Amino acid sequence: MYEPIRTKSVHSTMAGESTDFPHRSREEELDIQLAGHLAALLAVTDELRALQPSADLDAAAERLAEQVARLRGGRSPARAAVSGTRREPSVPALHRRAHTLAGRALVVAASRADTAAAILAAERMDAHTAALEPRELASR
């Protein structure tokens, strides 16, 4: 009724067989995700620093850069200067974006049990929430 399979499967699941492509562990995948979220948060933090310089944002950017470098095996994250050629973003919108990115980083850091990154992400969420509260309360 059915024709027998004549070729070897391309989806090898047998232990001990070598494959042509690299496999990453769950921890490696989580490291990559966490580094990506923290690098995106660093980029938004750098934009905020350009619009509203503060010692808090400077310290946060340094800590974020350290965590990204740690997760990437010592490679420093790319940092671009904010150019004045594009439309200036809204500061509250940047704080909301940073809050969202910090939340994503917190979820991944918690799932990989990375206490340092989780604490940093939670602190950044609190800081961006605090930065938004006076504006949002005043506009109501």
Rank of each mutant, 00 (worst) to 15 (best):
A127T: 05
H128W: 01
A93M: 10
A110G: 15
L51R: 14
V107F: 13
R97A: 05
P53I: 08
R97N: 02
V107H: 14
L94G: 04
S83D: 15
H37N: 14
V44K: 06
A131N: 01
S111M: 15
A35W: 03
T115H: 06
A131L: 01
S54A: 03
D56M: 06
S76L: 09
A116G: 14
A81G: 14
R49P: 01
A117H: 00
A127Q: 04
R87E: 05
E66G: 06
S83E: 14
P77K: 11
A80Q: 13
R97G: 03
L71F: 07
S54N: 00
A59P: 00
L64Y: 06
A127S: 13
E62T: 10
R104G: 14
A55D: 15
R96K: 11
Q52G: 01
R87K: 12
G84Q: 13
P77Q: 08
A80E: 14
D126I: 07
R72C: 08
L34S: 01
S54K: 01
A113P: 07
E88K: 14
E123T: 00
P77M: 06
A130M: 07
A59V: 11
L42Q: 07
A80P: 02
H128G: 03
E62W: 07
T115D: 12
M125D: 05
L51H: 12
E47M: 15
R97E: 11
V91W: 05
R96P: 04
L64E: 01
H128C: 07
G103I: 06
A43L: 13
P77V: 11
E62I: 10
A39T: 11
S111Y: 14
A110Y: 02
A43K: 15
A59G: 08
A130C: 04
P92N: 06
A105T: 06
R124G: 00
E123A: 08
R112D: 10
G73S: 03
P77T: 09
D114A: 00
V44F: 05
A130P: 00
T45R: 05
L120S: 03
R70H: 09
L41C: 09
A81C: 00
A93V: 02
G103N: 02
A35V: 04
R63K: 15
A43N: 09
V107G: 10
I119Q: 05
V91T: 02
D46A: 14
A69G: 00
A81P: 05
L41T: 13
R86P: 10
A69I: 02
G73R: 09
A122L: 03
R97I: 06
Q33C: 04
G74I: 07
A43I: 10
L57R: 02
P89H: 10
V68L: 05
L38T: 12
A109Y: 04
A93Y: 06
T100H: 07
A35P: 02
T45Q: 10
L101N: 02
L34F: 11
L120D: 07
L64G: 05
R49G: 12
R97P: 04
A60S: 11
